[in-house]
Design a protein around this nucleic acid. Sequence first.
DNA 1: GAAGTATAACGTAAATATACGACATAGTAT
DNA 2: ATACTATGTCGTATATTTACGTTATACTTC
Lengths: 116, 116
Amino acid sequence: MTYAKTTAFTEEQQQLARVAKALAHPARVAIIQLLASKRTCISGDIAAELPLSRTTVSQHLQELKALDLIRGEIDGLTVCYCLNTALLQQVHQQFTGFFNEATTGAACGPEDGCAC
Amino acid sequence: MTYAKTTAFTEEQQQLARVAKALAHPARVAIIQLLASKRTCISGDIAAELPLSRTTVSQHLQELKALDLIRGEIDGLTVCYCLNTALLQQVHQQFTGFFNEATTGAACGPEDGCAC
DNA sequence: GAAGTATAACGTAAATATACGACATAGTAT
DNA sequence: ATACTATGTCGTATATTTACGTTATACTTC
């Protein structure tokens, strides 16, 4: 993509888009759900539960880690990944604000010349 | 991308990822905010407010329309785009469910052998 | 009907994303 | 030290996204 003009958007819009992009793949959604449901969060276990190669899963993990949505702690030979619940709550609020703005705003109607 | 294995994820995960992908570009976030804030939602007006060419904006609009997040009504020569607030509310709930699951689930801790 | 205007569709180039095998690294165990 | 195991990194092929100019379509107006 040619992201040259990306800087013309507000930081708020870019931030929301960044997080949305992190959730824009079912594997990453699945990873977060896995980390939330299981207490064991070893990298290898995650890869074993997903229909993807270890390499690809590792790549998705790095992407989530880059946004700090998850954190990895090296524990000897294995690596334990955990959710950054504080950030997730913050992101949740951000999304809620966005959706509230979108759903409670004045919807256009016939009085605006629109048929919808 | 090689989406061959995408079918191995649950429909719920794929649906969430699909919507997230729609929000994964600042231009599309901006478009939704614009439609929410302004009652006039003519296609040309939208393009004029964004730092992108008409062609590109039209492309983003089609993407949002493909997911039914917005709807376009042809009104003579112009096209009026409106938010599908009902669907947006539904999507909001979906996200809320996901984030609640992610933030209230049992976070892993020292008792699981993790340092985080 | 001809000219003008508003959009969408088409074609295309460049940037990114996805997936995975092969290799590198680092700790464990014998 | 050597063999083994768990992960991450690198390189690479393919698919998709983004952006935009150009062309086609459709309606309005004269």
